[in-house]
Design a protein around this nucleic acid. Structure first.
Lengths: 213, 213
DNA sequence: TTTACTTTAAAACAAACGTTTGATACACTC
DNA sequence: GAGTGTATCAAACGTTTGTTTTAAAGTAAA
């Protein structure tokens, strides 16, 4: 058995642990997820979490990956289309990461969880992921409504956009009971993105008129 | 000591328990709230919860009170003003109940919690409070954009309005870290209500144009 | 084979949780 | 004053939680 093979084998437990943790954390949140469930799904002993990582919290931190979210901002900034189109693209891609269960959206779903149920790593998440993405949208809004908008109103515009998007994830337990047939398939997400995009652009235009009549 | 006085005294513990439970549940959610903390604040023995109520869950159910929220709908329906104005009034009053800590808004805050962290009584909450209030807003939206809007788009309009409002409560842990100076005083809530109202009316007008060009 | 090191395993740990118990004090009825 | 039902209390119950321990199994180099 080569050294490489050994590393692969010994790393298997660690990787299976990470994969299982991503699933269980995103399904149940940090608090409700139990180390026993994670280990059961990863098919490792319960002591493995504290062997490979040092704690449940460190395992949670290790599962975080902000790159897909930040890559989304960079990708959209590269295009040379107008600010309105870029905002529509962002809303679409953001909802895809947030709602599509088939995608690698699990990391993004953590952040949605954190909004409602703060954990000790929330500070890090806000600093490295949420703040940049809020700033990104704030810049887009500035381009759309003009620079003369005041800071408080700009903040509320950003909140209006994120609020609409996040509601579909935060409110899922309620939405599921209100509309049991509703499923977030690809077509539905497209429709949601189209709606929020048009709704928000009209809203922003109204705010811009208020500020500069 | 009269019989009435005796009842008052014996009911004191029960009432103090309810009052403390409302506070602790709204601050920490159902799961994170502990019976020991509730009893400590109510200054009763830890056995009192299972003596007066039968369980922590039954105590939680007993603290629920949907009347302020439903009264809000009735009050607004009584006015003879146009649908737009009624929607603005609703958003304002709803945000007041949702965000103002000085008001008797504690009951309303439960429902916000439930959105993200479902408990065994969520079904009851959706049926008796959230569904009616969603229907109320849906009716307002119908009046504003015209009856010809299709069901899915109507639902998304309602979600856009509630999403904007709820974000200020759901996102509070994050918002607090993003904007540490931001406080939900009376003036700020008024400003938020004004923003969401204008933003949403413009959004609805745009959706109405799409449906009936 | 011996040695040193890494990985796995079962069991137990301490803490926190909601809940229950059994005793005690009290007010009222007969 | 004995008996009855209510209210309160400290203590302990049984579970579940994340974490730790201790020992065994496996692996690679000497």
């Amino acid at each position: 058995m080569t050294a490489e093979t050994k590393i692969n084998l010994s790393e298997q437990a660690r990787e299976r642990l990470l994969a299982a943790a991503r699933v269980v954390f995103s399904e149940n949140g940090f608090q409700n997820a139990t180390v026993r469930e994670i280990c059961r799904r990863a098919e490792v002993n319960i002591a493995a979490i504290n062997y490979y990582f040092n704690s449940k919290e460190a395992l949670f931190a290790a599962t975080l990956n902000f790159e897909p979210l930040l890559a989304l901002c960079k990708k959209i900034n590269q295009g040379s289309i107008c600010a309105q189109e870029r905002l529509l693209d962002f809303i679409h891609d953001f909802l895809m990461q947030l709602l599509d269960e088939k995608e690698f959206s699990v990391q993004c779903q953590f952040m949605a969880r954190e909004l409602a149920e703060p954990t000790p790593v929330l500070g890090k998440i806000v600093q490295e992921a949420i703040a940049p993405i809020h700033q990104f949208v704030a810049n887009l809004v500035c381009e759309i409504v003009g620079e003369k908008i005041n800071e408080a109103e700009l903040r509320r515009c950003v909140f209006s956009i994120f609020g609409q998007c996040m509601y579909y994830r935060h409110g899922q337990p309620v939405i599921q009971r209100l509309h049991p047939k509703l499923r977030y398939d690809h077509r539905e997400i497209e429709a949601i993105a189209k709606h929020i995009g048009e709704f928000s652009l009209a809203g922003l235009k109204q705010i811009a008129q208020n500020e500069c009549p």
